[in-house]
Design a protein around this nucleic acid. Structure first.
Ligand code: NAD
Ligand code: NAD
Lengths: 214, 214
DNA sequence: TAGTTATTGTTATATATTTCACAATATTTT
DNA sequence: AAAATATTGTGAAATATATAACAATAACTA
């Protein structure tokens, strides 16, 4: 792999996910072979980078023959090492929480939202495929579905306390939409998604005419 | 600034946005002075990194005295160089598009969603603060509000064609939620937000017990 | 006021990431 | 079957990013 001290992957993992997305699309289109530059063009990554990433993950192609779509996809599944789909939960069934709960394509990615939680009784009355529970049932559901990853989609003032509960009940990874940096023990993985920052960085780059990196 | 060949900022710009978020919170709490390690702790960044970033953007503090919250916030506004708030639009008034349109805190960040667009007549009947228009009015609204940045929140199959229209009508930056890498001329800034990837990378790291980078 | 101390600002060092360059080689062509 | 060719795989070089180290100094202390 790499000599990376902390963790054997970073940017490269993100790109593997990116490649997988493209390959799934190519697969659906019936394409069955591709080259590093094909995928590079598709994903906006240089061909060398694609090969380097594949090399890091021990993905082999054939010289002169490129790679096989089906084979690569299954190699990638193997990298992601899924024992079936992953049960996750969403805390906060507001705008973002509901968008996620309504999104039907997660299942293709083996992401399985088993429940959502909200303190607002009116939200708890929502009838949908994915249930809305009170916060009292958080521990029960986490245990029942062996949930290791959760999404935080509550307003900023509530986010840290929700996060603390999740960690207490054994969640090891959190995707956080609240615009606050959550404090967690070192071993807990946090992915902060700050949509305002995402938008603002584009606005900034547009007004400065500078290229964003992917 | 830096010797970065393409653009004078990357990770550092993202962090400046992060710092700003924290400082705005500190400001609201009535805090008026902070140190590199204070902000570092708040944002999960090392104190050295904070100072390095400030240095890159020519932000000065006082030795031994730290930095002033108010002053820093206004210096940051200056970096972002906003001539008042920025008019942006959202194409696709579905789950994500509506979440964005309903979000009341963008205004604090001087992000101003002036209109949304959808092909679905039922969406066009939505009555809300932020209007929903047919795609026919796209050019008119872009021109009227001098829109330079747009958000794409349509299903994947429609995303490229929507993107092409936006570019044709003069939009220079796009935040894209569809899980596809949009093809645009070099000068157009694209920020692809792939929520499946964001979730999946956490799931992966949790199952591998490896730390994510911020 | 002089000495002490905490904190900045920056230079140097270490690490990570990307790009380059090319040898190795499977496939295609003649 | 031999030669030509396109493509991979990877080590070396270039670039970017992060960490460490510390001199400079403003603020504090006595
Ligand atoms: N909607 C956007 O476009 C947008 C953009 C940027 C950031 N965000 C952030 O994402 C988060 C979610 O945004 P949203 O628009 O979905 O908000 P929302 O207000 O629509 O939904 C939040 C939900 O969380 C619930 N909630 C509040 N406190 C709770 C608690 N302690 N435990 C459980 N549930 C609780 C509320 O009842 C509500 O249903 C917020 O932190 C917001 O700042 C959203
Ligand atoms: N909702 C999520 O949690 C989630 C997660 C991951 C990715 N995404 C992606 O984000 C995008 C938006 O997701 P969503 O859940 O809001 O979808 P959605 O189906 O709720 O909304 C899409 C909207 O786009 C409109 N639309 C379709 N074609 C259009 C066109 N050509 N021009 C203008 N409008 C058009 C539809 O009428 C609909 O209102 C999709 O690409 C989706 O794959 C969403």
């Amino acid at each position: 792999m790499k000599k990376n001290t902390k963790c054997p992957l970073r940017k490269s993992l993100r790109r593997i996910l990116l490649y997988r997305g493209s390959l799934l699309r190519l697969q659906a289109l019936g394409v069955n072979r591709f080259y590093s530059y094909t995928l590079g063009k598709e994903t906006g990554v240089s061909a060398e980078q694609v090969r380097k990433d594949f090399s890091e993950y021990r993905i082999k192609g054939n010289q002169r023959g490129g790679y096989h779509v089906d084979q690569l996809i299954s190699e990638m599944e193997h990298i992601f090492y899924k024992k079936g789909s992953q049960n996750i939960i969403v805390v906060g069934r507001g705008n973002i929480g509901s968008s996620l709960a309504n999104y039907s394509n997660f299942i293709q990615r083996q992401i399985n939202i088993v429940a959502t939680f909200d303190i607002d009784p009116s939200k708890q009355r929502i009838r949908s495929e994915i249930p809305v529970y009170t916060m009292e049932r958080l521990k029960e559901i986490i245990d029942r579905f062996a949930v290791r990853t959760a999404i935080v989609a509550v307003p900023e003032p509530a986010a840290q306390s929700v996060c603390d509960q999740l960690v207490e009940y054994g969640v090891g990874g959190i995707i956080n939409f609240a615009p606050v940096i959550l404090k967690v023990p070192d071993e807990v993985i946090i992915n902060n998604i700050n949509l305002s920052d995402e938008i603002e960085s584009v606005i900034y780059c547009v007004s400065q005419a500078c290229p964003e990196e992917s």
